[in-house]
Write a protein that binds this DNA or RNA. Sequence first.
DNA 1: CAATTTACCTATTGACATACTAGGTAAATG
DNA 2: CATTTACCTAGTATGTCAATAGGTAAATTG
Lengths: 133, 133
Amino acid sequence: MISTKGRYALRVMLDLARQGPEEPTPLKDIAARQEISKKYLEIIVRELVAAGFVTGVSGKGGGYRLCRKPEDYSVGEILESAEGPLSAVSCLAEGAAPCPRAADCLTLPLWAEYERLTHDFFYGKRLSDLMQR
Amino acid sequence: MISTKGRYALRVMLDLARQGPEEPTPLKDIAARQEISKKYLEIIVRELVAAGFVTGVSGKGGGYRLCRKPEDYSVGEILESAEGPLSAVSCLAEGAAPCPRAADCLTLPLWAEYERLTHDFFYGKRLSDLMQR
DNA sequence: CAATTTACCTATTGACATACTAGGTAAATG
DNA sequence: CATTTACCTAGTATGTCAATAGGTAAATTG
């Protein structure tokens, strides 16, 4: 399940993409357009900054700007920066304790296949693919 | 993310499939083989009974039995009976309040496409497909 | 019939993550 | 120097997940 954090992150990136790279877009405007609490968006945007996806410009006339062109972002990397790894099950999440039953678990291959499917789907989509309907 | 409930449900069904239909399999044995708390499995199996996937036989020599042949179960229906709808985002979950932004949300089509992908993947797999590695 | 083994039922709990909110400080501009 | 913006730390309500606790009812076996 994709949580609000990941969905909001993607909507922020899309909003920035639509505003264009000329002048930075203040978070207040994004919050208004997207109808999301500005306070909550601050948390999300901070992570996008940390991931190197957007840069912030302080002061009057400031705001946020994309670091790359929309076609150079995959949806997958945006989602993962907000949500952590897109693992279908905890057995496959990296950093988790390896399951002692893995060697003969009949379901593990299923989860692994689904994870590949998910990864390929989201990393195959570009931010620019979502810019118009 | 697939939770333990869904994963355990699938493992129970697989365990029952492997034991064969001759005599019912007591939950105690499944819990031992799968190394899952029997108490927790009771909750999960109750839902499998309610869904019409397995039947229970009380008393000595009792246990659980599959209602169909393994090839007549899809993995998707088993997971959904334990987890509820396999929706990627709350906007698409049936029963949820319809999102007022749906009409011009740029991300909704993405989630819808992913949901289709997920649905087709899990409903395309049969329980019998997982019985041997 | 009595003891045992099984399914079946209700309720509760601890831990954790999610989705926020509150209340600031620092930086840049006019 | 006032305003506007980003940036930072902390807290909190709610809910879900994963599991336990402690039973009752049903069927079989000796």
